[in-house]
């Protein structure tokens, strides 16, 4: 196999003339990070609310949360993304749908991707939050109520803060997943890291260099997130609990 390696490709100027190929990669990296972080905020918010609802003593509310989880766990991420991007704007009231379609294409792609990843990951966060709350001794809820807390106050001050401390490790792997899953968004044309990698192959005909660069960047994201989350884990440890000191 004869292949001409050319790592210099990254510093040469792109056909658009305003940046280098490395510049393209970095802008893709930037999009990947912005997308993943904003989707993570949505996922944490929805996941926390739904996770709490799954444990409340109301069939109705816990049922809604269960339907949410099953729907978002049993349809492939790619199909969900296409439904958010291609289908939802058609089903919305005309005014709303049209205002979405009049946005610039990048904004449309980013918005759909962000909401899609947020809801998809939220279903997984929800299950972790539920497991965390259910793993607390039942007496904790009683102790909160016995002090005169209402049920929402008991959740806010007692159950949720403790549950979140317990589920930092599984949340870490969901946080890593959101970066990896964001690569799926290249399929609707969003120029994130994986898409820039493919674009580089098309423009430079140097596939190995391009893919190696992209892969290294994903591995780098992984390492950084893991290091950060290990710090979070250390800070959120509860003294006297397993893993605490």
């Amino acid at each position: 196999m004869s292949y001409n390696w050319n790592w210099g490709i990254f510093v040469s100027t792109t056909p658009t003339g305003d940046t280098t190929y490395l510049g393209w990669m970095l802008s893709g990296l930037q999009t990947t990070i912005a997308l993943s972080l904003s989707a993570w905020i949505i996922a944490l918010a929805i996941g926390s609310i739904m996770g709490v609802l799954r444990t409340v003593p109301s069939r109705w509310l816990s049922g809604i949360a269960a339907v949410y989880v099953e729907a978002f766990r049993n349809i492939p991420l790619l199909v969900q993304l296409f439904i958010w991007y291609f289908v939802l704007p058609e089903l919305l009231p005309a005014a709303l749908g049209n205002s979405f379609k009049q946005m610039n294409p990048t904004a449309q792609q980013f918005l759909s991707s962000m909401v899609c990843l947020g809801f998809f990951t939220g279903a997984r966060v929800c299950e972790q939050v539920r497991a965390g709350i259910n793993s607390l001794p039942p007496g904790q809820k009683n102790a909160g109520l016995a002090l005169g807390f209402t049920l929402p106050q008991t959740y806010r001050h007692v159950l949720v803060p403790m549950a979140f401390r317990l589920i930092v490790p599984p949340l870490t792997s969901e946080f890593l997943n959101i970066f990896k899953n964001s690569a799926v968004c290249s399929t609707i044309g969003l120029l994130e890291l994986a898409a820039q990698g493919r674009q580089l192959v098309d423009y430079t005909a140097q596939p190995y260099e391009s893919f190696i660069a992209v892969t290294v960047m994903y591995v780098g994201i992984n390492v950084i997130v893991m290091t950060l989350m290990r710090k979070v884990e250390r800070r959120s440890r509860v003294p006297g609990y397993i893993g605490g000191k």
Binding site: M1, L176, F179, K180, N181, S182, A183, V184, S186, T187, A194, G197, R198, P207, Y208, F211, V214, T215, Y218, V219, N222, V223
Partner: peptide, 25 residues
């Protein structure tokens, strides 16, 4: 660890690049 830190989409793109060349050889 390598496979778990890279998106599946990227892995597939890699194999669509490499496998045909390997088969060729």
């Amino acid at each position: 660890n390598l496979f778990r830190s890279v998106p599946l989409v990227m892995v597939l793109l890699w194999f669509f690049l490499i496998v045909p060349q390997l088969l060729e050889i």
